[in-house]
Design a binder for these strands. Structure first.
Length: 141
DNA sequence: GCCAACGTTGGC
DNA sequence: GCCAACGTTGGC
């Protein structure tokens, strides 16, 4: 079991849109970066991830689960890029902001802090538990 | 709106 | 294969 963090601009693909896709989920498309693609290739079905809104919000708002492993992106005419399918698991009761994360010593080495530009990131198990606790999730996946 | 950090491109 | 120039991302 591995943990991840997926970033999106709310204008482009929001948490509400993700939730509307229901159990079947949707492609996590539009990734045009090799490191991010490699991270998606490393994902296994059943892995969990944080859903992070960039831009004005800059906070983790929900939990997603990988329902389909890396495959060519259906909307990419070149066929060069891949995506995974993810489904919304649930809201974080209390969204965790980037400012909170930066202010938390235990989260200092999160990729989100160290390399804010990477759009698909690995999250360690201890980071996962810490953020879930801060977000008010009593029983994290 | 600015700019730092990072990735990609293309000339050599 | 190096590196300067350029484009993009995302926080401030």
């Amino acid at each position: 079991m591995a943990y991840w963090l997926l970033k999106s601009e709310a204008d482009t693909w929001s948490w509400d849109q993700q939730k509307q896709e229901g159990r079947k989920g949707a492609e996590w498309g539009g990734v045009r970066n090799f490191q991010a693609r490699n991270n998606m290739r490393a994902m296994n079905k059943g892995d969990f991830g944080f859903f992070y809104h960039t831009g004005d919000e800059k906070r983790i708002v929900g939990i997603v689960k990988v329902v389909k492993e890396a495959h060519p992106e259906s909307t990419d005419p070149t066929g060069q890029w891949e995506c995974v399918d993810v489904t919304a698991v649930g809201d974080l009761p209390r969204p965790v902001t980037l400012a909170q994360i930066k202010a938390t010593p235990a989260l200092k080495s999160m990729v989100l802090v160290r390399n804010s530009r990477l759009s698909v990131q690995p999250v360690t198990e201890s980071e996962w538990r810490k953020v879930c606790a801060m977000g008010g999730l009593a029983d994290p996946p």
